[in-house]
């Protein structure tokens, strides 16, 4: 039924029921091939209204390419998607009216002032004068730029530029927001403030699709799609991912001498993979093979100076490291 949304409501925004199950973004077999390289390989997923959908995966996995196709910046090689009920290939102009897009580059005019940037993007979105005045004031407040309206955008701090870029992207109050690594290069407190803004918008019904590398940010997402090699390898809520993505048992091992010991640990039968975790090693073991004590004994038997072995619960980071290289034994 929701595939017909765009046809039923031939307007800028779609009226939706409040239960949040109606998909606003529907991705159907979306594929992008650059020459011989398949950047995005038959993606399928949908995002309901008001959800923060996190897109995670290693660099070059196809996250940005997917977002760029959904925004109409790139054409798809195969497959399609609807955004706000409009087909990205057939109706890209309607799609563009319904979305806000912000990338890690904070595309602002650094030689224009804060107000001039806002006025420009407001004009590009065709806002009427009175609405622009209202929205400009709202955006300045939201971005914490009060008193800085006359400053050149290029002289603002990274965090202020980021919030101004977000403000410019949402001037026209789009029901759908695409954020491509929006918090890169911004300090943790500002990142937190930024996510407060995003969550606030989502709670008011804005659908957000965001890519990130930060695990703490992934936790803010309603659901996470993990993409690797252009394919969606996992899609679930953060807690379900932590529960299900890793089938092995996880132990945190502290060794006296880390030098070269990772390969030795991985050569122990029953150990599936390892990854560094701070000064320690996370060791993924086949279920039922070890307890903390028996793993410690096995390592000591192999001649390693083991300081401690502790059974730990799987974090999102562990889950992603395992997901990024599911076939290989070792993961970076």
């Amino acid at each position: 039924m929701f595939l017909n949304v765009g046809l039923l409501n031939n307007k800028r925004t779609i009226t939706l029921n409040r239960n949040g199950t109606e998909p606003v973004i529907v991705v159907d077999g979306l594929t992008k091939v650059f020459g011989r390289f398949t950047a995005v390989d038959h993606l399928h997923f949908s995002v309901p209204r008001g959800e923060i959908f996190g897109f995670l995966g290693p660099n070059g996995a196809g996250k940005s390419t997917t977002i760029r196709m959904l925004c109409g910046l790139l054409s798809s090689t195969e497959g399609t998607a609807t955004v706000g009920g409009y087909d990205i290939n057939r109706d890209p102009e309607r799609v563009r009216q319904n979305i806000g897009y912000m990338s890690q580059k904070f595309s602002l005019y650094k030689d224009l002032t804060v107000s001039e940037n806002i006025a420009f993007f407001g004009g590009v979105y065709g806002l009427a004068r009175t609405r622009l005045r209202e929205r400009a004031a709202a955006v300045v407040r939201l971005a914490g730029l009060t008193g800085l309206e006359k400053r050149l955008a290029g002289t603002l701090s990274g965090a202020h530029q980021q919030r101004l870029a977000l403000g410019c992207a949402i001037l026209h109050e789009p029901p759908i927001l695409f954020l491509d690594e929006p918090t890169s290069g911004v300090d943790p407190i500002s990142r937190r403030l930024f996510w407060d803004l995003i969550q606030d918008m989502a709670s008011r019904g804005v659908t957000v699709l965001v890519t990130t590398h930060f695990m703490d940010e992934a936790e803010f997402c309603g659901r996470i799609g993990f993409i690797s090699g252009g394919r969606l390898v996992a899609l679930d809520t953060p807690s379900a991912l932590k529960r299900d993505a890793v089938r092995e048992e996880l132990y945190e091992v502290s060794l006296a001498d880390m030098q070269g010991s990772r390969e030795r640990v991985e050569s122990v039968p029953g150990v599936v993979a390892t990854s560094y975790f701070g000064r320690n090693l996370h060791v993924f073991c086949r279920p039922g093979t070890f307890t903390a004590e028996s793993l410690q004994q096995a390592l000591v038997r192999d001649g390693m100076g083991v300081q401690s072995v502790e059974s730990v619960s799987v974090s999102l980071e562990d889950a992603f490291i395992r997901l990024a290289a599911p076939a290989g034994k070792a993961a970076a």
Binding site: G72, L73, R96
Partner: peptide
């Protein structure tokens, strides 16, 4: 070059 073109291209600008 300054990648502001992208920001215009995601707008309804023709």
């Amino acid at each position: 070059e300054r990648e502001t073109m992208e920001q215009m291209m995601v707008s309804p600008l023709r």
